[in-house]
Nucleic acid binder design. Structure first.
Length: 575
RNA sequence: GCCGACGUAGCUCAAUGGUAGAGCAGCUGAUUCGUAAUCAGCAGGUUGUAGGUUCGAAUCCUAUCGUCGGCUCCA
């Protein structure tokens, strides 16, 4: 039922994209048509025309679309020979359509016409343009023809369409609401972090409130890793280029690396932590009895990402991974991956985050033997199955050095970002000759797993901000309690209460400004502080407190110790 | 990196070739007040940066840095 509903909504949107294309062709006959499919929340159509022209005329295009809708032109399907279709698109000078046509294997192709407009299209469509009533053009973007970087850049118009006006309105509304949860906006208003052009693009400054949030996450990470048999290691931020030559990064990844010369020597700012961890492993001979070895580091790395892909905290140039490398025997692979998966699930549950998992398999270009790939892929699959985790398979999407499991998390607008990832690596063990002495006394090749369980501190904090809309659970809140005085006369008592809470490890502040209570409540509310402790003459006299939660609930007449216990329990429970 | 849009006070925004302005925040003073904004005054800007056009530029042009939406990339 639901599938059918989606299907017909896709049809509606696909039809809307044809109407848009018709409108563009009417206004700008020189525009060449690309493709125009429905997508998750709407549709788009690509045109080969100066994007500036379109961007200045989105309103006119939408107006023309409404006209086409009023004309109520029927969508007419027509089966024609490829030969005839070719003639039609040659006449209309549509090179991209001709290119698509050549790739269709059937002798007959379907065309859809509405009025003077004709498109090569599989369909289906709604009956007539009059059925497409509620739509909106949303944005304009460049997009490479067929998604290939070397191809010409076309101009893509995004839009959306719904059967009902209410649905369109609520969709537009939802986008507006989601924008309020944008971590870049909240990061500013909650004073968590900033990015500064003086520093450089993609480099994050954590302000005190963002830094304490990160500090809490890092402490938590360290504890949890120690509980699971990881050994902390620490490796430098820069190293001789030689190391990266051996790892292969200088050959494959150089354009993303910060490389600098010092006298005769070339140095590299690390873009990854693996070579450092490998040096730890290779610092002595390893026995099978030592394995698995799990080295953990909150490793800060720098990568020169393309300027166009930077995005707040979610895509940056300097970031800290909760990185670990597991060195194990092939026979230990499944168990190790299972443990990591459990770790990831534990994290997702602790932070109440939704996610989806993808298993990426062998790409066309790869290193290592097909048998090893098969075995590793099988190990990952087995681990996923044994943990009962639903996952999708991305055929051929693995790294060239091994298969991987990626975990994606959603931002406020539903865009997916990779967080945790578990990658098997056949490459580095070869390049660095990573071995252990087997029971037989012979050297064997070690298996290496790269894994992060949150991903990076930056991205994870970004996702957390959007997930909670800035209203973090108590244990993560930069300020857990703010004490508000009703008049300045309660100041002394307020600071006494502050001392008690502070000494219990609660992050607490006092607002004893000479301002009205309503004003202070509003400030605390805007800062999304979980608890406001209100102290007026009544409380001062009886040495009790009144607590207002950020949800607006009031708890009156609490003993101070009672409240402290309550907050500590919340922190303990991570709720 | 590519396409398009954008960049004005700490923040949110106004000023379409003719003297840069408002609200909030900040500071000073008054007010001592009970759950989302008390009142008044003051201060705050080489309009991202660098060039250019013009009698005159926030406004037009060029370059550059950065931001936003996509595309591509994501060892």
């Amino acid at each position: 039922m639901e599938e059918k509903e989606n299907y017909s909504q896709d049809v509606l949107r696909h039809s809307a994209s044809h109407i848009m294309a018709q409108a563009v062709k009417r206004l700008f006959p020189q525009a060449k048509l690309g493709i125009g499919p429905p997508i998750r929340d709407g549709f788009y159509y690509d045109f080969d025309i100066d994007g500036e022209v379109l961007s200045h005329n989105l309103d006119r295009i939408e107006e023309e679309m409404r006209k086409i809708v009023r004309e109520d032109l029927p969508f007419e399907k027509e089966m024609v020979s490829k030969e005839k279709a070719r003639k039609i698109f040659e006449e209309r000078e549509e090179p991209y359509k001709l290119e698509l046509l050549e790739e269709i294997e059937d002798d007959e192709v379907s065309l859809y016409r509405q009025g003077e407009f004709v498109d090569l299209c599989r369909g289906p469509h709604v009956r007539s343009t009059g059925e497409v009533k509620f739509f909106r053009l949303l944005s304009l973007a460049g997009a490479y023809w067929r998604g290939k970087e070397g191809n010409p850049m076309l101009s893509r118009i995004y839009g959306t369409a719904f059967f009902k006006k209410e649905d369109l309105d609520s969709y537009l509304n939802r986008i507006e609401e989601a924008k309020k949860r944008d971590h870049r906006k909240l990061g500013k208003s909650l004073d968590l972090f900033s990015l500064s052009s003086e520093l450089g693009a993609g480099l994050v400054i954590y302000h005190p409130k963002g830094a304490i949030l990160r500090e809490i996450l890092e402490r938590f990470e360290k504890e949890e890793h120690l509980k699971r048999g990881y050994q902390p290691v620490i490796t430098p931020h820069i190293s001789r280029a030689h190391l990266w030559k051996q790892s292969g990064h200088l050959d494959y990844y150089r354009e993303n690396m910060y490389v600098f010369s010092l006298g005769k020597e070339e140095y590299v700012v690390k873009p990854m932590n693996c070579p450092g961890h490998i040096l730890v492993y290779n610092s002595k001979i390893r026995s099978y009895r030592d394995l698995p070895l799990r080295y953990f580091e909150l490793g800060t790395v720098y990568r020169r990402e393309d300027s166009g892909v930077l995005h707040g905290l979610l895509r940056v140039r300097g970031f800290t991974q909760d990185d670990a490398h597991i060195f194990c025997m092939p026979s230990q692979l499944v168990d190790e991956v299972r443990e990591v998966l459990r770790f990831v699930l534990f994290m997702m549950k602790t932070f109440r985050l939704g996610y989806q998992m993808t298993l990426s398999t062998r790409p066309r270009k790869y290193i290592g033997s097909p048998e090893n790939w098969e075995r590793a892929t099988q190990a990952l699959t087995t681990a996923l199955e044994k943990e009962n985790i639903p996952f999708e398979v991305a055929q051929g999407e693995g790294a060239f050095y091994g298969p991987k499991i990626d975990v994606q998390m959603e931002d406020a607008l539903g865009r997916l970002w990779q967080g945790p990832t578990i990658q098997v690596d056949f490459n580095l063990p070869e390049r660095f000759d990573l071995t252990y002495i087997a029971p037989s006394g012979k050297k064997e090749r070690v298996v290496m797993i790269h894994r992060v369980v949150l991903g990076t501190m930056e991205r994870f904090i970004g996702i957390l901000i959007e997930h909670w809309g800035g209203a973090f659970p108590v244990w993560l809140s930069p300020v857990q309690v703010r004490i508000l005085t009703v008049t300045t006369k309660e100041s002394l008592f307020a600071w006494q209460v502050y001392q008690k809470m502070m000494s219990e490890g609660i992050r607490v502040e006092v607002d004893d400004d000479n301002a009205m209570l309503g004003y202070k409540v509003r400030q605390a509310q805007l800062e999304k502080i979980p608890y406001m402790v209100i102290i007026g003459p009544r409380e001062k006299e009886k040495e009790i407190i009144t607590v207002r939660t950020r949800d607006g609930e009031n708890l009156r007449g609490l003993e101070i110790s009672e409240f402290i216990e309550m907050v500590k329990t919340k922190i303990e429970d991570k709720s």
